[in-house]
Design a binder for these strands. Sequence first.
DNA 1: TAGTGGTCTAGACCACTAG
DNA 2: TAGTGGTCTAGACCACTAT
Lengths: 246, 246
Amino acid sequence: MQVRVADDIRLKIETGTLGPSDQLPTLDELAADHLVSLAVARKAVDLLKQQGLVITIQGKGTFVRERPTARRHGIDRYAKSRWRSGQAILTAEAELQGHRAGQLIRELAETAAPAGVAERFKIPVGTPVWVRRRTTLVDDRPNQLADSYFELDVVNGTRIREDDTGPGGSYARLEESGFELDEITEEWSVRMPTGPESAALRLPAGTPVVDLFRTTFDTMGRPVEVMLAVIAGDMVQMSYRFKIPD
Amino acid sequence: MQVRVADDIRLKIETGTLGPSDQLPTLDELAADHLVSLAVARKAVDLLKQQGLVITIQGKGTFVRERPTARRHGIDRYAKSRWRSGQAILTAEAELQGHRAGQLIRELAETAAPAGVAERFKIPVGTPVWVRRRTTLVDDRPNQLADSYFELDVVNGTRIREDDTGPGGSYARLEESGFELDEITEEWSVRMPTGPESAALRLPAGTPVVDLFRTTFDTMGRPVEVMLAVIAGDMVQMSYRFKIPD
DNA sequence: TAGTGGTCTAGACCACTAG
DNA sequence: TAGTGGTCTAGACCACTAT
């Protein structure tokens, strides 16, 4: 029955009988209308929550979820001209799409390189590295937990260790230090968030996250930055364009 | 309490007290051990299922979920040398990683172009196009619902309309028809599966899916194929490498 | 047949929202 | 204060697995 009820509601949403942000019948009403117990009506709504179709707000009601306009991430956001002209990647990207970007620094510290990071730097796990942990915001909603790692000799004595990295951000500072940035590797996978991640990113139920490893190489092929980001899945859309290899 | 119980179990999993494919205590035991009702124990296990940490099998028990070895998708899978030598992309990719690939054709038909497809072909929504729907399998588990769309004049009279597209697959046939394949765009986003998708891909609870649009262009810049794939999120890992644009 | 998870009922009480 | 969703209990019965 719970599936019946859920399907009933889903149909109403998909056909537009219930539009975005519309309020669903209350649990009591759903139970009465479908001649089921309150627990079953609740279970049906839970199913829809898990599929990301509705959200519930205690004390208010159940509502059809609005699909947030996903931000498109294209590789143009890395264009050298942008950060050379003093614009941080984050800001450039958001503004291109009419959004307001922000960030909170969560931690600046020396730490032991975790496995995925060490592997990409080709150094032993546990080697001391510098980490810059931040939460990025789009229109005041947190959308990424982004941790950037650097080898110590790369950042010592630069503004990358500071709260404010200055115009153009870390990339601009790296270039000033003599690293000519050349290539980027992006590797990602998908999963459901852990409890703390759900809270930190204020994720609605039924929202997956994307794990993104971004490695930046200089012209010598040296990985100069490894970033590990956990991105809110409902706010991301990536796009890549490439030549078909021979 | 449900959260307490769930956290308790999660801790055991994360510390390795419970390893992959180990069986958890039964719901009755969990309830008794934590002095809660059966319903609460069940709710706790539900939470872990949603986070993809455990799976339940009716009649058998609850088990710590094994993380399937995600397949890495790199752009090398599109290398011309592969399909020119008669190897389909799907097969090449799987074999590179020691897996067995397969596919089931779900439908071959003329259909009206849906919005996302029409947009990428730059044709009006509803224009008749050819669609080739298939379910791809890796080691006998379905991992993608992949629908390839082609404009009619591109596929008429070719083996692309047939069940077996022949050596090298559609790409090889397109080249034979005089389309010189050149570039690909991949655009993806993430969401939770719908009910039918969950069933078709045999997704464990708490598994997201990836929506992938792949558009293949020829040297004239014409989009010759648009593929829309729904990929099981627990079996995918994508990687891209690119030069930093100027 | 015993043991496991899945669904459902009926009802108590709590937490949050809004007028 | 009334209305809403959230948590929890106690218990019945069903569906599937293994022996």
